[in-house]
Amino acid sequence: MEVVDPQQLGMFTEGELMSVGMDTFIHRIDSTEVIYQPRRKRAKLIGKYLMGDLLGEGSYGKVKEVLDSETLCRRAVKILKKKKLRRIPNGEANVKKEIQLLRRLRHKNVIQLVDVLYNEEKQKMYMVMEYCVCGMQEMLDSVPEKRFPVCQAHGYFCQLIDGLEYLHSQGIVHKDIKPGNLLLTTGGTLKISDLGVAEALHPFAADDTCRTSQGSPAFQPPEIANGLDTFSGFKVDIWSAGVTLYNITTGLYPFEGDNIYKLFENIGKGSYAIPGDCGPPLSDLLKGMLEYEPAKRFSIRQIRQHSWFRKKHPPAEAPVPIPPSPDTKDRWRSMTVVPYLEDLHGADEDEDLFDIEDDIIYTQDFTVPGQVPEEEASHNGQRRGLPKAVCMNGTEAAQLSTKSRAEGRAPNPARKACSASSKIRRLSACKQQ
Rank of each mutant, 00 (worst) to 15 (best):
P6S: 13
T13R: 07
G15E: 15
M18L: 07
S19Y: 06
K41R: 14
K44L: 10
K44Y: 12
Y49W: 06
L55H: 12
E57P: 15
G58W: 01
L67A: 05
S69V: 03
C73R: 08
R75C: 13
V77S: 02
K78T: 01
I79R: 05
K83L: 02
K83S: 15
P89L: 02
P89Q: 11
G91C: 01
V95T: 15
L102I: 09
R103W: 03
R103Y: 07
L105A: 10
L105D: 02
H107M: 02
N109S: 02
I111F: 02
V116I: 02
V116H: 08
E120N: 15
V128W: 04
G135S: 15
S142C: 08
S142V: 13
F148E: 01
F148M: 10
F148S: 00
A153D: 00
Y156D: 01
L160V: 09
D162S: 09
E165V: 02
H168V: 02
H168P: 01
G171I: 12
I172V: 08
I172L: 03
H174I: 03
I177W: 00
K178W: 02
P179F: 01
L184T: 12
L184R: 02
L184W: 01
L190A: 02
A200C: 07
H202P: 04
P203R: 06
A205W: 15
A206G: 07
D208Q: 14
D208L: 11
R211Y: 13
T212Y: 11
A218W: 03
Q220R: 04
I224P: 05
F231C: 10
K235C: 11
K235I: 06
W239L: 01
S240I: 02
G242D: 00
V243M: 02
L245I: 03
L245D: 00
N247T: 05
T249H: 15
T250I: 10
N266S: 05
G268I: 15
S271Y: 00
P275G: 07
G276D: 10
G276V: 06
G279L: 11
L282F: 08
G288S: 05
M289Y: 00
L290N: 00
Y292V: 05
Y292I: 07
E293N: 13
E293W: 06
R297S: 00
I300V: 07
R304S: 04
Q305R: 07
W308S: 00
F309N: 00
K312A: 09
H313Y: 01
P315N: 13
P315H: 10
A316M: 06
E317Q: 08
P319C: 03
P319F: 12
V320W: 03
P321Y: 03
P323I: 13
P324G: 10
D327L: 14
D330L: 14
W332R: 13
T336D: 01
V338P: 13
L341R: 08
L341G: 12
E342C: 08
D352Q: 04
D352C: 10
F354L: 07
D359G: 10
D359Y: 07
I360L: 07
I361W: 15
Q364S: 11
Q371G: 06
G385F: 10
P387T: 14
P387Q: 11
V390A: 13
V390P: 13
G394I: 13
E396L: 07
A397Y: 11
Q399C: 09
S401C: 06
T402P: 13
T402H: 01
K403W: 13
E407Q: 04
E407L: 04
P413T: 12
K416C: 07
C418R: 13
S419N: 13
K423F: 06
I424R: 13
R426D: 11
K431Y: 12
